[in-house]
Nucleic acid binder design. Structure first.
Lengths: 209, 209, 209, 209
DNA sequence: TATGAATGAGGTTTCATTCAT
DNA sequence: TATGAATGAAACCTCATTCAT
C-alpha cells in the first residue's frame, strides 16, 4: 500500500469516525439537541476537526440521511427491475426495508425524523433538492411495481401513486412509531415483526378480490 | 356573571389565545425553531405573559399535543364502545382520524412530530407519563376493536396489539409523510384521500379470507 | 412627561449608552480586535442586550460611521449653499472639519478607518450603498465650491472633481496620520493645528496666480 | 556556487514566494480577513511551512510594511541629500512616491492600512519600535527639505515638522482615499493623477508669496 | 525542511427566562 | 395581571498555531 493510498484510507476512516459519532448522537438526541461538541467528544476529536470534513452541522446531518435514502432508492429500483411477479416484488420490497432497518436502525430512524420533522423546514435549497430527487426516485420505483401489478390484474385498480405513498407511509410510520414506543416504554425493538405484519396486511389489501 | 367568573373566563380566553398562537407557530416552524417571542407576537401578548400561563416552552408545546391526544383517545373509546359490528367500527375509526385531521391539521401534525421527533427525548418524566398513559388508552381502544373482530371471526387471527400498532402507524405515517411531501413540493393537501386509501387497504388486509 | 415619552427617552439613552461604548472600544481597538463582550462591559450591559438595539456587530460599527458622515455631508452642503465668496467657503469648509473633529475625534477617526481599512471589504451591499451615497453627497458639495471658485476666476482651472478628492484626502490623511503618530509616540493631539496648516497650504495652492 | 550558497538562495526564494503571496492576500483582503491558509495556498506551500520562515502572522504582515517603509525612507533621504534646489527636491519627492506606488501599489496601500488601521494597535513593542524609527527617518528627511527651502527663502516660514506631516498626510491620504473610491465604485486607478495634482497644489501652497 | 491534519481558545449570536415597573 | 427590556448561558464556527510524520 502506497503512502497516498494509506492517507486516503485514513482520511476515509476519519470521516467515518465522525459519521459514526454523529449517527449515534443525532439518533439519541435529535438534530437540535445534539451538539457539535458532543459529537466531537464521541468521535474523540476536537470540534474544529469536524469542520475540516463537513461544512457545518446541517451538512453533517443531512449527509447521513441522504446517504441511506440513496441506498434505499437503489435497492428499491433493483427490486422493481427484477424479473419476477409483482407479488414477489412486494415481498422483496418488504425485505429491502427490513434489511435496511436491521443494518442500521439508528440512521434509518434519523432519515425519517428528518423527513417528518422540523429540520426539513430549515434545509438549504441545494440539500433539499437532493432529498427531493432521491426520494422521488424511490417512490417512482415503488409506483412502477404497483402499476405492473395493476396491469397484470393482480392489484386493485386504484391511483398507483397514492398506493406508493401508502407503502412508504406504512414503512416510515411503523419505524417511527415503534421506535417512539420503545423510547417511551423502554421496550425491546419490535420493528421487524410489526413491519412484517403491516406489509402482509397491505399486500392482502392491495390484492384484487 | 360574577366578577370571579368573568375573571375565570377571561383567564380561559387568554390561555386559548396563547394556545392558538403556539399551535400556529409550532406547526409551521417546529418546536426548536419556534421562539417564544414569535408566539407572543402572534398572540399579541408579551413574552413575559406566556410564563404566567405556562411554566415554560416545553409545557406549552406538550399541552397542545396531550390535549389532542386525549381527544383522540376519547373519540376512539366511544367508537369502540359503540354497538355496531367491528367492520363498521373500523370505518368509524377512520372517520375519527379524518375528522380530527380536518378540524385541526396543524395541531395533529404537531402531535406526530412530537411523537416521532426529538422533543420526545427531552420531556420531563411527569409530562412523558401523561403522554404514555393517554397514548396507551387510545391504543388499547383500537386493540379492543381488533380483538372483537377476531372473536367475531371477521378479522385475521394475528397479534391484535401489533395490529393496533399497524393502524396507528398507518395513520401517523400517512399524515407525516403527506405533510412532508406538501412541504417539499408545495403540493396541495391530499392527506384525506391518502388516508382513505390507506384505511381501505388496511381494512381489506385485516379481513379473514 | 408621560410614561410613553419617558420610555422613548430611556430607549434612546440605552442606544446612546451602547453607541458611546462602541465608539470608545472601536476607536481604541479597531473593528476586528474589539469584541462585543468588551463593548457590553464598557456599556455596563450584557452582550445579549446589544443585539436588541443593533442587528449585529457590523451594523453597530457602521452606524457610528454613517452617522458622522451624514453630519459632515449636511454641514458641507450648508457651507456650499452659503452666500459668500468661494474663498470664504474654503475657510468655512476647514472649520466644519475642525469642528467635527473637535466634537468627536474618536468617531471621526473611526469613520476614516472604515473608509481606509479592511472593514470596507466586508460590508453588506446595502450598507455599502449608504456609505457611497453619503460620501458622494459630501464630495459633490466640495466639488461645487471648487467649480464656483473656478468660474469666479479665483481658483486654478484644473479638474474640479480631482481637486475635491485632494481636499478630502488631505482632511482624512491628516486625521489618520496625526492620530497614528499620537498612538505611536504617545504625543498629544495636534490634529487641529496640522489641519489648519494643511488647509492654508491647500488654499494658497488652489488660488490662481 | 556551493551547496551552502544554493541553500541560502533557495531559502531566500522560498521567503520571497511567501512574501509575494502575503502581499497579494493582505492587500486584497486586509489583515484580519486574510488567512494563513489562503496565503499558503497562493504561495503553493502548506500553512506549516510559513511558520518556518516567519514567527507568526503579525510578523509576516509587518515585515512587508517595514520593508517598503525602509525603501521609502532611503529614497527620500537620497532626494534630501541631492545637490539641487529645494524646489526640485519637492518634485523629486513626489516622484519617489509615485514610483513607489507604481512599482507596488498593493504593498504601499498595505503599509498605509497598517499605519492608519487597527493592526497598529496590536503590534509587539519590538516591531512597533522599528516602525517608529523608520517612519521617523523618512519624516526627518522630508523635514530637512522643507527647512532648507525655508532657509533659502523659497518656502513659507511655518513649523517645518508640521509641513512634513502635511506632505506625508497628503501622500497617504490620497493613496488610501483613491484606493477606497476604486473599491467602492469599481473605478479605475487614478492615484497617480490625483497625486500629481495634490503635490502641485501643495508645492504652490508652500511657496513664499 | 516541508507537510497538513488536528487543535482549542475565543468570537459572534440566539433565545428561554426573569423581574422591576 | 401584564409588560418587555435585560440577562447570560450555551450554541456554532473560525483560524492561528503546533507537531508527528
Amino acid at each position: 500500500m502506497g503512502i497516498q493510498e494509506r492517507k486516503t484510507r485514513e482520511k476515509g476512516l476519519r470521516r467515518n469516525q465522525i459519521l459514526e459519532a454523529a449517527k449515534e448522537v443525532f439518533s439519541s438526541k435529535g438534530y437540535n439537541t445534539a451538539t457539535i461538541e458532543e459529537i466531537a467528544d464521541v468521535a474523540e476529536l476536537s470540534p474544529g476537526t469536524l469542520y475540516i470534513y463537513f461544512k457545518n452541522k446541517e451538512e453533517l446531518h443531512t449527509f447521513l440521511s441522504i446517504d441511506i435514502l440513496k441506498h434505499i432508492a437503489e435497492e428499491v429500483e433493483l427490486v422493481a427491475q427484477d424479473n419476477v411477479s409483482s407479488d414477489v416484488k412486494l415481498d422483496n420490497l418488504r425485505d429491502v426495508f427490513i434489511k435496511v432497518y436491521e443494518k442500521d436502525p439508528m440512521i434509518l430512524i434519523s432519515l425519517f425524523h428528518l423527513q417528518a420533522g422540523e429540520t426539513l423546514r430549515n434545509l438549504s435549497t441545494e440539500v433539499l433538492d437532493q432529498l427531493k430527487q432521491t426520494s422521488a426516485r424511490a417512490l417512482s420505483a415503488i409506483t412502477s411495481i404497483i402499476v405492473e401489478g395493476i396491469e397484470a390484474g393482480v392489484f386493485i385498480d386504484d391511483h398507483p401513486v397514492a398506493l406508493a405513498d401508502v407503502i412508504w407511509s406504512t414503512f416510515s410510520g411503523v419505524v417511527l412509531w415503534v421506535d417512539s414506543k420503545r423510547l417511551l416504554n423502554d421496550q425491546k425493538d419490535f420493528v421487524k415483526s410489526t413491519l412484517k405484519i403491516a406489509f402482509s396486511i397491505a399486500k392482502k389489501g392491495l390484492k384484487k378480490d
